[in-house]
């Protein structure tokens, strides 16, 4: 019963990602999209919180949204996988259900 959560808000602006992390079950996945991609960057004030959550949740980030904001893949926190739109679709089919956090 693994769930895919998508989060499209920046961790610096809204509490959406923190709420999502606190309610996501172990073994589920979080995909960061749109403005949410800035939460995936290493060396930020939120990076430790996210690294800790990665102990039992898989993290993904949407590459095209990352590049639109001038952030290259090599700036992403170790362990977060960068996916393209095809990878996004694969994730949706690999999980039992999806929750889109808005």
């Amino acid at each position: 019963m693994a769930m895919l959560h998508t989060v499209n808000k920046s961790v610096f602006e809204r509490s959406t990602l923190d709420s999502c992390i606190s309610m996501a079950k172990a073994g589920s996945s979080i995909l960061l999209i749109e403005d949410g991609v800035v939460s995936a960057i290493a060396g930020t004030a939120a990076a430790d919180r996210i690294s800790k959550a990665m102990e039992n949740i898989s993290f993904y980030v949407l590459g095209p949204d990352l590049r639109a904001r001038g952030m290259s893949e090599d700036r992403v926190i170790d362990g977060i996988k960068v996916v393209d739109y095809e990878g996004y679709v694969d994730l949706t089919t690999e999980h039992d259900n999806i929750q889109s956090w808005l």
Partner: peptide, 10 residues
């Protein structure tokens, strides 16, 4: 203001 923004994918 970040440099090297690439929006072709979006």
């Amino acid at each position: 203001l970040t440099k090297d923004q690439d929006t072709t994918g979006v």
